[in-house]
C-alpha cells in the first residue's frame, strides 16, 4: 500500500454551473472524483463521505476561476498529473474542470493558507462612484477588481449593479506555498 498523500486541486466552475450553490458544488466534485475510480480518503463516521476541504464558499451566480479543494489519496502518486487531469475532465459536466493539482505537506491546511481572493465585477453601465476610480473600460464593459480577505463578505451577483461576477484569483500565504512539495 502506498503512502497517503495530500493534494491541493485548482478548479474552474463556469457557464451554467455558476448557478450551483456551494453545497451543490462540493457534492458535484465528490461525484466527479468518484467517477474517476481513483480512491480518495473518506471521512470516518456514520455516513462516510469523501474527505474534502474547500476554500471560501461562494454565493450562487458567480463564476469561479480560482476554486480550491484539498483531498488525500494513496493512489494518485502512481498516475501522471496530466493523465489524471484528463481523466477527471472526461467525467466532468460541462463547466467544471480541474486545471492543476500539487502535493502538499501533511500539515497543510487550506483555511490557514488562504489569505484572500481577487474578484472581477463586470458592468454594462458606469460603475458606482466609489468604484469608478478602479474601473477599467474594455470595449463596452467596465471591469472593477476587488480584493477580499479570506472569510470576509463576498460580492453577490448584482450587488453593485454588475451583471457578472468572477472570482479570478486565490491568494495563498507565501509561507504555505514554500511548504508545498511542488507541482507533480
Amino acid at each position: 500500500m502506498s503512502e497517503i498523500k495530500k493534494y491541493l486541486f485548482h478548479y474552474k466552475r463556469y457557464g451554467l454551473l455558476r448557478y450551483l450553490s456551494h453545497l451543490e458544488t462540493t457534492a458535484m466534485i465528490e461525484r466527479v472524483l468518484r467517477r474517476t475510480g481513483v480512491h480518495f480518503e473518506q471521512t470516518q463516521g456514520f455516513h462516510q463521505r469523501m474527505k474534502l476541504s474547500f476554500g471560501q464558499a461562494l454565493p450562487t451566480g458567480i463564476i469561479d476561476l480560482s476554486g480550491l479543494f484539498v483531498a488525500s489519496s494513496d493512489r494518485l502518486s502512481s498516475i501522471q498529473e496530466l493523465d489524471f487531469i484528463n481523466l477527471v475532465n472526461s467525467v466532468s459536466p460541462r463547466g467544471f474542470e480541474i486545471s492543476s493539482f500539487e502535493e502538499m505537506p501533511k500539515t497543510f491546511k487550506l483555511s490557514k493558507a488562504l489569505s484572500g481572493y481577487e474578484f472581477k465585477l463586470l458592468f454594462k453601465t458606469v460603475p458606482p462612484s466609489n468604484m469608478i476610480d478602479k474601473a477599467l473600460k474594455v470595449n463596452d464593459v467596465w471591469i472593477v477588481e476587488l480584493y477580499k480577505p479570506f472569510n470576509s463578505s463576498v460580492p453577490k451577483n448584482g450587488e453593485f449593479g454588475q451583471y457578472l461576477t468572477l472570482r479570478s484569483k486565490a491568494l495563498l500565504s507565501e509561507v504555505q506555498i514554500d511548504q508545498s512539495i511542488g507541482s507533480r
Binding site: 451554467l16 448557478y19 450553490s21 461525484r31 466527479v32 451566480g61 467525467v91 459536466p93
Partner: peptide, 19 residues
C-alpha cells in the same frame, strides 16, 4: 434564461447540463 436565473430560488434546478 441566463438573464433570469440570478433572480430565482435554487437556480440549479433549471439549468440542465447534468452529467
Amino acid at each position: 434564461l441566463v438573464s433570469i436565473l440570478d433572480r430565482v430560488r435554487k437556480p440549479s434546478r433549471y439549468i440542465g447540463n447534468e452529467y
